[in-house]
Design a protein around this nucleic acid. Structure first.
Length: 351
DNA sequence: CCTCCACCGGAACGTGAGGAGT
DNA sequence: ACTCCTCACGTTCCGGTGGAGG
């Protein structure tokens, strides 16, 4: 079966809950059942997904070195020998399919045809509703028999969830109705993400506690919102690879000019200068173009492809986050601090 | 209406560091 | 000792293209 829904709508939680129930019922009845939960985005590759599956069956595989086909065969053999009913949960499966294709999924759907004793069921969980478009029709037909869509929580439902948790976490009277309502409203606006709502409430609580205030107010929630967002971006920014940082820095520097936007070519020019400054050898423009797209995807940049007629086709690029945030992160970094003040040679050409 | 710019983005291939099986 | 894997991260090559300006 397939389960769709945005982040924080309870797909994973519900799946795990139901499988737990199923598992204990199976235990009661003495049925041979095995459940394996894999997060495909974290696993990242077909190989690692398969090796998690093998792990669940106690089939030993090295973490690298084998051909994917070999690992699959071992998995199949293990399954057949143990005569189990195997339930595979592939969470965030869209992430894997988009990058690696649907080969693994196809093999998994047809595995029952070749097994003599074992049986498998697949539960695919996806954040992306359009995910189906990426699938082979054969995979689709065998997996689409059952579909569940988790719609986003609305503000009222979020409030309900928050209150239940709050009863466990907060003392009586420490939480104002309005604060909870605001948490719910903010999260509801952002596609009803319950995890986000809970995060907000937790951070708001921490802020109030640190302040020594007896209760959590709306202001704490607003403060928490800023904090959560800031921390998130800060984290990604800091852990970016050097070249991505340099690209970002180039966009930042170009932002100092009067230009309202920048294009790939300009960025590449400055990027090369920065590489020179730091003693790194620059990557190719093709690669940098790829890095820009990646940065666009995580939201640090806004890039969109435009055609400028005679002046060709390129990407218009802006910073996707506040300039001060970039400055903050780079000032903390010895290597990048001086780059912030760097004046590129090619600025002579801009006004 | 056509041309042609300045890149886009897919695909194939390379590298070097993980390792396995025989 | 040898051949064969994966995998992240790059490079090389190249066909494709929206629309301003001739």
């Amino acid at each position: 079966m397939f389960i769709y829904g945005k982040t924080g709508t309870g797909k994973t939680a519900v799946t795990k809950y139901v499988l737990n129930k199923l598992s204990s019922k199976a235990h009661e009845l003495g049925a041979l059942i095995e459940i394996c939960y894999v997060n495909c985005r974290l696993a990242g590759t077909e190989y690692r997904v398969l090796s998690s599956l093998c792990d669940a069956l106690d089939v030993k595989v090295p973490f690298t070195g084998l051909a994917v086909g070999e690992v699959f065969d071992r998995f199949k053999d293990g399954l057949d020998q143990q005569r189990k009913i195997f339930i595979v949960v592939l969470d965030e499966i869209d992430a894997l399919i988009k990058v690696r294709g649907d080969k693994l999924l196809y093999e998994l759907t047809r595995i029952n045809e070749t097994l003599r004793h074992g049986r498998t069921s697949i539960i695919g969980i996806s954040n992306d509703l359009r995910f189906k478009e990426f699938l082979d029709p054969r995979v689709l037909s065998s997996l689409s028999e059952e579909e569940i869509v988790f719609r986003p929580y609305d503000a009222a439902e979020l409030q309900d969830i928050l209150w239940r948790r709050a009863q466990l976490a907060f003392s009586d009277g420490a939480l104002h109705d309005s604060a909870v309502a605001l948490c719910a409203a903010l999260a509801a606006a952002e596609h009803g993400d319950a995890r986000r709502a809970l995060d907000l409430l937790r951070v708001a609580g921490e802020l109030a506690e640190r302040e020594g205030t007896a209760f959590v107010s709306e202001n704490h929630v607003r403060e928490a919102e800023k904090r959560v967002e800031h921390d998130r971006i800060f984290e990604v920014l800091e852990n970016l690879p050097v070249h991505s940082k340099l690209v970002l820095c180039s966009v930042y520097l170009l932002g100092k000019t009067k230009l309202s936007y920048t294009i790939t070519g300009d960025i590449y020019g400055i990027y090369c200068e920065l590489c020179d400054q730091t003693g790194l050898s620059p990557l190719t423009q093709r690669r940098v173009s790829g890095l820009i797209s990646e940065l666009d995807m995580i939201g640090l940049l806004n890039a969109r492809v435009v055609s400028m007629g005679r002046h060709g086709r390129t990407k218009k690029i802006r910073l996707g986050i506040g300039r001060s945030l970039v400055r903050n992160v780079f000032t903390n970094n010895d290597r990048f601090r001086e780059l912030l003040g760097y004046v590129p040679n090619c600025f002579a050409g801009f006004h």
